[in-house]
C-alpha cells in the first residue's frame, strides 16, 4: 500500500517535470515556427515571380490576397469572395450564375486576415446565421503600379500515392509563369522527380490555349532541352532551346508516367477553373463599380 503511494507520487512528479519541459519547448519554438513558415511562403512566392534574395521585388509591386468561400444556406449555394478593396476588405457574394447577391464591407485588420481561424470567424459573422461558410481556396493578385501582372494560385490534387500540393503563377492572360511543388509523397527517385526543375519548368510559358489540351508524352526528354530546363547553359542559348520546345507536350518522367499525368491534369484543372471564376468576378466587380485594390 505504501508502495502505491510513493509510485503515484513519483509518477506525478515525473509527469509534471516532463510537462514543464515540453510546454516550454512548445512556447519557445512555436513563434519561430510561424515566422519561418511565413518566410518560406514568401520565398516561394517571390521565386515563382522570378525574384530572389539577389534580385529583390521592386517597391511598386504589391501582393493582394483574395479568399474564396462557399456559402451554403438551406436552399442554395453561393460563392463568397473576401477581397481587399481600396479601403478595407469587402465580402462579395455571387450566385451560381455570377449575379451579385451581397456586397458588404468587412471590418478586419490586415494582419488578422492572414490567420485562418480569425478570418473564418469574421466571414461566418458577415454571412449571417443560417448560412454556413467553408473556405475553398486563396489567390494572390500581384500588381505593379496598380496594373495586374500575375496571379498566384494554390492547389491540391491527387497524386500517385497521396496528394500533391502546388503553387502556380500565371500572367493576366493565364499563361503559366511558374510551377512549384509544395508537398507530395511520391516515391523517391521516381515520382518524386516532379519537384525537379527539368519537370516543373516544362510548364513554364505554356499559354492558356496550349494548356487546354496539354498532354503528357512518353518520350525521352531531349538532352539539350533537359540542360536548358535545369538552367545549366547560358541564358541566351537556353531561351532559344526553350522556344524551340515551347509548343511540345509535357515529357513524362522516366518510370513515373502516372505521377506526371496527375500533375498535368491537376495544373490544367486549377488554371481552367481560375480563368472561369476570375471572368465572373471581374464582371461583377465592374457591374457593382467596386474598387478593388487590384
Amino acid at each position: 500500500m505504501k508502495d502505491i503511494l510513493t509510485i503515484i507520487f513519483r509518477l506525478t512528479v515525473t509527469c509534471i517535470l516532463a510537462a514543464m519541459v515540453m510546454g516550454s519547448a512548445f512556447i519557445i519554438t512555436n513563434k519561430a515556427k510561424k515566422h519561418n513558415e511565413h518566410v518560406n511562403e514568401q520565398k516561394v512566392r517571390y521565386a515563382l515571380l522570378g525574384y530572389s534574395a539577389a534580385q529583390p521585388i521592386p517597391d511598386s509591386m504589391a501582393l493582394h490576397e483574395m479568399y474564396r468561400y462557399v456559402v451554403t444556406d438551406k436552399e442554395s449555394q453561393a460563392i463568397g469572395y473576401l477581397l481587399p478593396g481600396k479601403e478595407g476588405f469587402i465580402f462579395l457574394t455571387l450566385d451560381m450564375e455570377g449575379k451579385v447577391i451581397d456586397n458588404k464591407p468587412v471590418d478586419i485588420a490586415e494582419s488578422a486576415v492572414l490567420e485562418k481561424d480569425l478570418r473564418d470567424k469574421v466571414v461566418q459573422e458577415i454571412a449571417g446565421a443560417g448560412r454556413s461558410v467553408t473556405f475553398a481556396d486563396q489567390t494572390i493578385v500581384v500588381t505593379n503600379n496598380g496594373e495586374r501582372v500575375a496571379y498566384l494560385l494554390d492547389g491540391k490534387f491527387t497524386g500517385f500515392k497521396t496528394f500533391i500540393g502546388v503553387m502556380l503563377a500565371v500572367d493576366p492572360k493565364f499563361s503559366i509563369l511558374g510551377l512549384e511543388i509544395l508537398e507530395h509523397e511520391e516515391d523517391p527517385g521516381l515520382g518524386a522527380e516532379i519537384e525537379r526543375d527539368y519537370f516543373r519548368n516544362q510548364f513554364k510559358g505554356k499559354t492558356f490555349d496550349q494548356l487546354k489540351d496539354l498532354d503528357v508524352v512518353k518520350e525521352p526528354l531531349p538532352d539539350e532541352y533537359f540542360q536548358a530546363l535545369e538552367g545549366n547553359i547560358a541564358a541566351a542559348d537556353a531561351a532559344e532551346i526553350l522556344a524551340k520546345y515551347g509548343d511540345r507536350d509535357i515529357y513524362a518522367l522516366t518510370g513515373a508516367t502516372i505521377s506526371s499525368r496527375y500533375v498535368n491534369t491537376g495544373v490544367k484543372g486549377i488554371v481552367k477553373k481560375f480563368a472561369y471564376r476570375l471572368n465572373i468576378l471581374d464582371t461583377a466587380l465592374a457591374d457593382q463599380k467596386i474598387k478593388a485594390a487590384f
Binding site: V70, I79, L94, M96, A136, K273, Y276, R277, I280
Partner: peptide
C-alpha cells in the same frame, strides 16, 4: 446540372 461538390459554381 452536374458539378463537383466542392466547386458548385463550375
Amino acid at each position: 446540372t452536374v458539378f463537383e461538390e466542392a466547386d458548385p459554381d463550375i
